[in-house]
Amino acid sequence: MHTSRMLQGLAIALLLAACGDTGPGNQQTETASPQAAPAEESQCELVMGWDPWEPYQYEIAGGQVLGLDVDLLTAVTNHADCRLSFRKGSWRELLQMLREGEIDILGGATRTPEREQFAWFTEPYRDEQFSLFVAATRLDELRDMSLEQMMNADLQIGVVEDYLYGERISAFQDDSGYQDQFVYSAMSETNLSRLLMAQVDAAIEDKYVGAAIIRHKNLGNDIVPHPMQFTSNPVSIMVSRASVDDAKFERLDASVAYLRENGAIDKVLAQYLNP
């Protein structure tokens, strides 16, 4: 029994070990470079708030901020002829900074009436999308099962505490008949570790976060996405009313629309799923 627990602990430790900084965010692209535009090219300067959440935004040695949302917001601000710099904080801290005009923009933001009192929102630039991940050895067994069939078969589903996965998942989480089938953890890596050790039957994860963990941990032969996917809310760039004027916001909003229409945003998104 003690040996089994030691092996399980070792598996978790290995999975949670720090990963390298290679990935799509290190690649320079024509449409979305993480480098800010040269100062002499623009008098528009914006500060993007960010909190660590790979692959959306993270920092590597030397202090460079990279990631999916960094690439996308850099593309938008470059197209709007603005220079971008970064300020780190927790999500709660960043919202207050945006309210007070200490930072100018945040990525991955959901529009709410409360937030609209102190911020503008561009048109959505991507959707929050969640995938169901399963052990590769069980994909054939589970491939054709719907979420309802999985829940009725008493399967255990790994999820992260305080994440909102959309109405479909929330309905099961709130149903007393299914609540015990959800296994909660503080972080995504723990869910995938439990999946490897057959402590859960499946794990729900943001599809880009899941893809990044699998890539960095070299787990592509062990954990695979199930065909089932869940779409949550569309997200926008949140822009401070205190520090950004109407004209500048309209330039940002128009840039989002342009980059969506010409396929540049889809191209960046694809890099993070298929690096």
Score class of each variant (00 low, 15 high):
H2G: 04
S4P: 02
R5V: 03
L7E: 11
I12K: 13
A13K: 11
A13H: 08
L14G: 05
L15W: 07
A17T: 12
C19L: 03
P24A: 13
G25S: 06
Q28C: 01
C44K: 11
L46P: 01
V47H: 01
P52W: 12
E54F: 06
P55V: 00
Y56D: 02
A61G: 08
Q64S: 05
T74W: 03
A75K: 07
H79W: 09
A80K: 06
D81M: 11
K88M: 06
L94T: 04
M97S: 03
G101H: 11
G108P: 05
G108N: 11
T110G: 02
R111E: 10
E114S: 10
Q117S: 12
F118M: 02
A119S: 13
W120M: 02
D127M: 08
D127Y: 15
D127V: 06
Q129E: 13
F130Y: 14
S131G: 10
A135W: 11
A135H: 15
E141M: 06
L142P: 00
L147T: 05
L147R: 10
E148A: 10
D154E: 15
L155V: 01
I157K: 07
V159P: 03
V159I: 09
V160Y: 07
D162V: 08
R168Y: 10
I169A: 01
F172H: 10
F172A: 02
G177F: 03
Y178R: 13
F182R: 09
Y184I: 01
M187S: 14
S188E: 14
E189P: 09
L196V: 05
M197P: 06
Q199P: 08
V200K: 04
A203I: 02
I204A: 02
E205Y: 11
V209G: 02
A211G: 04
R215M: 01
K217I: 05
N218K: 14
N221A: 09
D222H: 15
I223K: 04
M228C: 03
Q229T: 15
N233V: 14
P234Y: 14
P234G: 08
A242F: 06
D253L: 04
A254C: 03
A254S: 14
V256C: 00
L259V: 02
N262T: 09
G263W: 13
A264G: 03
Q271V: 00
